[in-house]
Design a protein around this nucleic acid. Structure first.
Lengths: 219, 219
DNA sequence: TGGTAAATTGAGTGATTACTTACTCACCAG
DNA sequence: CTGGTGAGTAAGTAATCACTCAATTTACCA
């Protein structure tokens, strides 16, 4: 006989309790790091006793590992990107990727958790990074390589180019979320600016060629 | 009570000892963060007793602050950049900046220290970041703005563009130094690739450029 | 040679850490 | 009612933390 999830508020099922501990701990670890967070705080935030934390997770480190493992889940936005990639709509591909990383990957604690775990040298950090992040620029590198072969893109190292694009976007988030730098434009403007810069470069078109576009002509 | 500047140290002069403590502590703080480093470790690394650490620095936090304050010193490479900027040698300006941030700013502990202090929310983190880092892209933004007014650069938000360039470079270092991603090309190649990408963009130059590119609205 | 001041330390301090033990209580089948 | 089970906790544990202090060593000078 399986245990049914309790509807009444009398007591909490093991699964729910585990989830509430993970939720509370993730918030604290993201804010203050592994070493900066105490198990007492976690218990207090989750509204339970410290001993109960250790009932569900044998060590503090195991709890940390459980959080990282849970956060690894990769999203499904790739479908949209796929469609744009099929149509060779370069601007749309990069806009989607950038926009996702700037707002949609909106969980602000995720970036902090990722950086903390990498800095603190947690053994799950590698896996966390590989699944959650590397996917983006390896996919991008594949797309760029294809477009290079089609002659649409300049012959540049595709991995380097992908890294550069993701770098612009991630650094934007780091400035904002870690270093608390005030944004001087909306996220949409930022994304548009990065994509334009990445595709067309900073240098103005040659003088003997008539200027093709002017800023602000978007309806 | 009165502290006189000592010219005659008994064993090791106060100044030297202070410096050696800072050196040892900086290494440890960069490796494991503020909360992850114990004062006993610091003393052991510096080859002295723990009590002596507290003779020179009233608290562990004060020691940390002293390290950050010391690392703020900005370098002098700006002269080279100035010269290139005078000649409007765009490629050289960005190459110098990038190259500096990739090899020359070679102190690997600096990036870790900066990230740790920002994540852990140390009060000196802001100053540390502003003096040591922001300088670069604010200077770059000024250069880009000038070149925009001269018609050499496309009309893009200069601060955004500078941020994008520094982002590519810094992200490169973060990948390498924090996430331990293996480099697949030499630093020189990386710098050259980034600069080319930044100035000319990814899209291949077209025979007869069509002005039809207009990013469709993305949901 | 002995006085002095600074450098240096062994041996602590109370507080806090991650983690454990022994226990209570709610619930349910028989 | 009774006894088993699992949720939950108060009150610990030993270890470690940042930090202190009385005492000792050393360099220098009168």
């Amino acid at each position: 006989m399986k245990q049914v999830i309790t509807g009444n508020g009398a007591r909490t099922s093991a699964r729910e309790r585990q989830a509430s501990i993970i939720f509370a701990a993730a918030e604290l670890f993201a804010a203050k790091g592994f070493n900066g967070t105490t198990t007492r705080e976690i218990a207090k935030t989750a509204g339970i006793s410290e001993a109960l934390v250790f009932k569900y997770f044998p060590t503090k480190r195991a709890l940390y590992a459980a959080i990282l493992a849970e956060k690894v889940q990769i999203s499904q936005l790739m479908d949209n990107v796929e469609a744009a990639a099929e149509k060779r709509d370069d601007a749309r591909v990069f806009t989607l990727v950038a926009r996702f990383r700037i707002h949609r990957g909106a969980d602000p604690s995720l970036l902090r958790l990722l950086l903390f775990s990498a800095l603190e040298g947690h053994e799950l950090s590698d896996m966390f990074f590989r699944k959650r992040h590397r996917v983006f620029y390896e996919y991008l590198a594949g797309y760029i390589r294809r477009r290079c072969q089609e002659g649409a893109f300049r012959c540049l190292d595709p991995l380097l180019a992908a890294q550069a694009f993701v770098g612009m976007i991630v650094y934007h988030r780091i400035l904002h979320e870690i270093f608390k730098v005030a944004l001087h434009c909306t996220p949409e403007e930022a994304v548009a600016g990065y994509v334009e810069l990445f595709l067309d470069g900073l240098r103005a078109p040659q003088r003997n060629r008539r200027p093709a576009r002017k800023a602000g002509s978007v309806s």
